[in-house]
Every structure is written in C-alpha cells, then in structure tokens.
C-alpha cells in the first residue's frame, strides 16, 4: 500500500528557527499525531506539506505524488482543517457549498448537507453567528465533502469542549475505516491522540525526537520515580531524560521491560504522551 505521507530530510529555516532534517512516514489507513511544544515546528511541517511555505531542502510525497510538481492533484485528494475557520463572517454554509462545488471536481453537495445535518449546523446562518465549535465542525464538513483520502488537521480541536472534541474524534475514526484514508493531526491535546492516533511523531526544537507507533511508545516507554540516591545508581545510558525535584526524582525510560529486569528494586510505571513531552521539553539530559 502507498504511504499517505512520506517526508524525507525536510529543512526550513526562518533565521531564528529551523526545521532540521524532518523525516516521517504516515502509512495509509492510519492516523498520525504530530506533537510538540509551541514553536517546535508542527505548523511549519504542515505548511511545507501544503506548499504554503518554500522548503529549503528535503522531499515530500503525498499518496505517492510530489507535493509541489503535482500540487493540484495532491490537493484534490486532501482535506485540510487549520487552527482557525477561514470562511468569511458574511458567508453561510450554503454559500460555502456553492463556492467549493466550483473548486473541487469531486465535491458532493449532498454529502456536505449530510455533514451539516449531522453536526447540526444551520445552512442559512452566517459564519459570524457560529460558535468556535460550530466553525470547526463547518471546516471539517468542508474538508470532508469532496471525499478526500488524506485529512490534515493543524490544532483543529484546540479550544473545543470535550463533547465537541469527542464528536470530531469519532468522525476521524469513521473516516479512517477506509484503509485508503489517512489523517495527520497536530495537537497539544495528547489525550485525544492517545485515543485516536496509530502513530506519534514528536517534534522538539525543529527536530523529530520520536516517530513511532503509538502502542509501541506507550508499551515501551516508562516513568521511573525514585530518590536522588537511587537515580545515581542507574546507568545514564538507561535513561532518556531526568527531572530532579525537592521530593524526589523522575526518569524517562525508553525500554520499560528491559529496565525492570535490570533494576528489580526500582519502580517503573507506564507513561503517557504528555509525560514524554514534559520530560523532553522540561527535563534534563542525563
């Protein structure tokens, strides 16, 4: 099966910030979560995929096609929801249907109407009257109504309440039932990604520090809680990052099972994506 997204050695410099040698692969039929702190390079990576910014180096293929030389064909197959709703306040969903029907060859007005009904969005109300949740649902409806094979979402669920987020996540899971479909979603809400994503790519200061199947990450990584004295006894090579506090120390372990076999007297717990982000973002190198 063709990979939905393949990025090799992507570089983009803004002077004070640079995306360095970013590589990732999103297989078809799966969801990849792109995580990282603010300014880590998630949006820049997405902008490079969408050719909104010029990359300095590297290669990006979408569904086996180059994202620049075959840009239009690539974008016919792609639905995009960015962190804001880009539809003008003076438009109504009805107008958006009329506009996008003349832009996408595969636009399905009936399907768009179905999504509006499903998300309970009034087709004759102006966008300015919509809440943030409604705007994001409208963006998602517009992104899905031309039957794309790839969905790209940049912080699309940020600022939404858990009920709306759950509704949108359900839609992602329904979309991904087709093995030909894939989703790349950048988000700070790691709990959503733990629920929905198959793969996680973690960007830190413009570099990929982790790109792996989510289950592998959650099964293998662990969090060590111990005293400062116990931490000193651990081989630094067995720790990814450490955090030293007044009441004890913590360490991020890459291979929980192997660590547990080696240090039977130390307690290693399962970790979460948020823990991993906090260790890498705020923890100290060993």
């Amino acid at each position: 099966m063709t990979n939905a997204i393949e990025i090799r050695g992507l570089c983009k410099s803004y002077g004070d910030f640079a995306l360095q040698d970013v590589s990732l692969t999103l297989p078809g039929g799966s969801i990849m979560g792109l995580i990282g702190e603010n300014g880590a390079g998630k949006t820049t990576t997405i902008k490079c995929i969408l050719n909104l910014v010029r990359r300095d180096g590297g290669q990006i293929t979408i569904m086996g096609r180059d994202n620049i030389s075959q840009e239009k064909a690539v974008k016919e197959d792609m639905g995009v929801v960015l962190d804001e709703c880009f539809f003008h306040d003076t438009l109504r969903p009805l107008d958006i249907d009329r506009i996008l029907a003349r832009i996408y060859r595969t636009w399905d007005s009936a399907l768009f109407g179905d999504y509006l009904d499903k998300f309970q969005l009034p087709s004759k109300k102006f966008v300015k009257e919509f809440s943030r949740g409604m705007k994001m649902k409208l963006s998602l409806s517009a992104a899905l109504a031309h039957r794309p094979r790839l969905l790209i979402l940049d912080e699309a669920t940020a600022g939404l309440d858990p009920v709306v987020r759950d509704e949108i996540l359900d839609e992602f899971l329904a979309f991904i039932r087709d093995e030909d479909h894939a989703i790349l979603i950048s988000s700070h809400i790691t709990s959503d990604l733990e629920k929905a994503a198959d793969y996680i790519t973690y960007l830190h200061q413009g570099r990929v520090v982790l790109s792996e199947a989510k289950d592998v990450i959650l099964d293998s990584y662990g969090r060590l809680a111990c005293t400062a004295k116990q931490l000193e006894e651990v081989d630094p090579g067995d720790l990814v990052r450490v955090r030293r506090g007044a009441y004890g120390c913590e360490g991020l372990i890459r291979d929980r099972a192997a660590f547990q076999r080696k240090y039977r007297n130390l307690l290693v717990e399962k970790t979460t994506l948020e823990d991993i982000m906090l260790f890498i973002g705020k923890g100290d190198a060993v």
Partner: peptide, 18 residues
C-alpha cells in the same frame, strides 16, 4: 481587506487551484 480579515489566502492555497 475581507480576505485579510478571514486569513483566506492561506486557506485558498490548500485548495486544488494553485
């Protein structure tokens, strides 16, 4: 001005138009 307010151009470039 309307496009700038809605940041439309960024979205327009995600459409299959160029």
């Amino acid at each position: 001005s309307f496009d700038e307010m809605a940041k439309w151009n960024g979205y327009a470039l995600t459409l299959p138009l160029g």
